[in-house]
Simulated scan of single mutants.
Amino acid sequence: MVRDITREAAAFADDKGDGLLHVFVPHATAGIAIIETGAGSDDDLLTAIDDVLPTDDRWRHRHGSRGHGRDHVLPAFVAPYATLPVVGGQIALGTWQSICLVDPNGDNATRQVRFSFLQG
């Protein structure tokens, strides 16, 4: 699953001025990616994850659905955090960049995202 959380991040940063927005997901199978969405890149990311980390029986971590061990390896490839510059309360993303929660773990649909801000 790739879920665009840019709107939620922007709402959090809206009245903060200049500084750094830190986005963190406290889950063992999730990461934060800065990617383009809506043009197929989110699906391409999931395909790339499947290519690099297939859902087969090679994983030692075996509880949950088949191939679930790869979900626990994902944060080594898609970090569970991102830090972004904020200027005048606006996240300084590129034209096509979005902040996305990435989690291929279908065993748990509930996820939290934590935002924090360092004034600067």
Rank of each mutant, 00 (worst) to 15 (best):
R111G: 02
F24E: 01
F24P: 02
N108G: 06
T37P: 11
F24H: 10
V113L: 02
T110P: 00
G88I: 03
I5V: 15
D14T: 14
P54R: 15
D50W: 07
F77P: 00
L93D: 13
L21E: 09
A76V: 01
V52L: 14
S116K: 14
G106Q: 14
D4H: 13
D51T: 12
A13P: 00
A109H: 08
V86G: 10
L101Q: 04
T47Q: 14
R114K: 15
A30S: 09
W96E: 04
D71C: 03
D103L: 03
H61N: 11
L101F: 15
H27K: 02
H68F: 01
K16I: 09
N108L: 03
D56R: 00
A82F: 11
P26L: 04
L46M: 15
I34M: 07
Q90P: 00
A48W: 08
H63E: 09
P75M: 01
F117V: 08
A79V: 07
D42S: 13
H22K: 15
I5E: 06
I91R: 11
H22A: 15
A9R: 07
L84T: 09
K16P: 01
G64R: 02
D42H: 09
G17Y: 01
H27T: 11
Q97F: 13
R114A: 10
V87R: 14
G89C: 12
G40A: 07
F115R: 04
L45D: 06
C100H: 03
V23I: 14
A39R: 08
N108I: 03
Q119T: 10
A79N: 11
L93E: 09
L84D: 12
W59G: 05
T47M: 12
L74E: 05
E8G: 03
C100M: 08
A48N: 05
G120K: 05
I32V: 15
G17H: 06
L118N: 12
P75K: 02
T83K: 07
G38C: 09
D42P: 02
Q112Y: 06
A76Q: 02
A9W: 10
G17D: 06
P80W: 01
Q90N: 13
D103I: 04
E36H: 04
H22N: 14
Q112G: 05
A109L: 12
D107L: 10
Y81I: 10
V78K: 12
R60M: 00
I49A: 05
T6Y: 04
H22M: 08
E36P: 04
I99S: 13
G106S: 09
T55A: 08
D15M: 10
G31M: 08
H27C: 05
A82Q: 13
C100Y: 07
T95N: 12
P54E: 05
T110M: 15
D18V: 12
A10P: 09
I34K: 02
I99Q: 07
P85T: 10
V86C: 06
V23K: 07
Q97C: 09
T47A: 15
H63C: 04
I34W: 01
I99M: 11
I35F: 13
Q90H: 13
G89P: 07
L118K: 14
Q112F: 07
R60C: 00
R114H: 12
V52M: 14
D14N: 08
T83L: 13
L46D: 04
R111A: 03
G40V: 04
F115S: 11
E36V: 05
T55P: 00
D14S: 15
V87P: 00
